[in-house]
Design a protein around this nucleic acid. Sequence first.
DNA 1: ATTCTTGCAAAAGTTTTGCATCGCT
DNA 2: AGCGATGCAAAACTTTTGCAAGAAT
Lengths: 135, 135
Amino acid sequence: MVRERKYSAKRDAILALLRSTKTHPGAQWLYDRLKPQIPDLSLGTVYRNLNLFREAGTACSLGTVNGEERFDGITAPHPHLVCSCCGAVLDLPPEKAEALVQNGKKILAKESFSIDFRKTVFYGLCRDCDSQSVS
Amino acid sequence: MVRERKYSAKRDAILALLRSTKTHPGAQWLYDRLKPQIPDLSLGTVYRNLNLFREAGTACSLGTVNGEERFDGITAPHPHLVCSCCGAVLDLPPEKAEALVQNGKKILAKESFSIDFRKTVFYGLCRDCDSQSVS
DNA sequence: ATTCTTGCAAAAGTTTTGCATCGCT
DNA sequence: AGCGATGCAAAACTTTTGCAAGAAT
């Protein structure tokens, strides 16, 4: 049972900004950018809407970088590069990811991104939770 | 330049517990389990030692689940299953991961774990940070 | 003696939430 | 009018840190 959503100019602005950037931002980044244009915007609203986007599948989380959750407006699953030093997040073209996985290359020439390690996580429901949700 | 480490019984206990479990615990879980046996243990010490393990490569982080960082005493890279509902983390045998990636099966029969989506993140240094660390 | 380790508590940082108000339908 | 959306501030949580005391080398 999904609740009805009403139009909200702020929600639209947050989503538009999220979709317009390749930085894979966190809540604070979005807030800082939007605040000058929307003076009566609060950080809580950014958080609330990001959670709505995630629930609705309009956006997705990439996970936490340096303690901050980062989001992607592109919901089609694709791998990412995270800089362990500065926390930058880059999209990784699927074909390059394939090559990386296959030959374990440490360097991604074009982006000049040196790979240290990879994390792969599958999300779903464990047996207990799956059976509970069905019944 | 890695600092010298002195022996610490508490550090040993934390690492032993981390290695003995398949739960991929967070700091609080380890603390709760150790506290009865080591009454003068503090949560801060668990955090400090987990960070030491990570720096030393003795343990590694799997990322954040429900806002809490989870650790693995097995440092050989391997994929994980995370239950979106209860936060349980399971190891995924590499050969099963391969099959999942190849055919995109939604169900992992043996573990009865239904897969919703996957996240793959490569960690390394971006061009800027890489050049800074070299020079 | 030196330096690492730790308990404790405060601090820091991120995210959530309660509540009154405002806006959309 | 009814209910969702929001500002604001407090609260909740996880993690880090400063400092003095204790332990290992």
